[in-house]
């Protein structure tokens, strides 16, 4: 190949690349004003875990130890005692070590009463690693603050302004497609 042809080839190559880049110049840029505008995170997304309490303030958790057994990194520690009034158990201690938590949500998967749930609450970066060792009070507080959460048993649930809890519409459910289709067929 002569020198001239090589130079032409190089110019053509650059022009081809520039044309491809130019096609994207007009695209709208996306800038997120993060601390002022929070990103919308689907409730199913495993950002953080929380313990949910019933509307009357009692624990949903029945201390069945299912999450402790299901946890792959074994970060959940539960202590329980017999319920003095009636059957079952009551929680004495529920520790979750977020330092070693893999956010796999296996605990949420196995919970029979949807006590431990995933929330879209992601601003939990701290300076001290010991701050991530959560106890029951901390997890309850996150649960009280959460407006929307997810667990496979009950699906996405919403806390209404008056404090009552109800199930979100199927459009918001991560597994809501079958439900929607069944509703259409029924109607």
């Amino acid at each position: 190949m002569s020198l001239l042809a090589e130079v032409w080839e190089a110019v053509r190559a650059i022009g081809q690349g520039m044309a491809a880049v130019n096609r994207r110049v007009g695209e709208s840029a996306v800038t997120e004003f993060y601390p002022y505008q929070k990103p919308e995170i689907p409730p199913v997304s495993v950002q953080f875990l929380a313990l949910i309490q019933n509307e009357d303030g009692s624990d949903r958790c029945v201390s069945c130890l299912a999450c402790e057994r299901a946890c792959p990194s074994q970060v959940i520690t539960i202590e329980r005692k017999r319920n003095p009034a009636g059957k079952g158990f009551v929680l004495e201690r529920f520790d979750l070590d977020f330092v070693n938590c893999m956010h796999c949500a296996n605990c949420v998967e196995v919970c029979p009463v949807s006590a431990i749930v995933t929330v879209g609450d992601f601003e939990h970066a701290v300076y001290d690693v010991n701050m991530l060792k959560a106890d029951k009070a901390f997890l309850d507080e996150i649960g009280r603050r959460a407006q929307v959460w997810y667990s496979p048993k009950f699906g996405v649930e919403i806390r209404k302004p008056d404090g009552s809890i109800e199930k979100a519409p199927p459009e918001m459910q991560p597994g809501g497609l079958a439900e929607l289709l069944a509703g259409e067929e029924g109607a």
Binding site: P42, V46, C104, A105, N106, Y150, P170, P174, G175, L177
Partner: peptide, 25 residues
Amino acid sequence: VEKTAGARMLPNYFTFGGVRRDVHP
């Protein structure tokens, strides 16, 4: 993927016998 599976890179979505939950509408 996040909308259905709950995570972006390590979703833990497949399970024995199928998938963990039905897909998002």
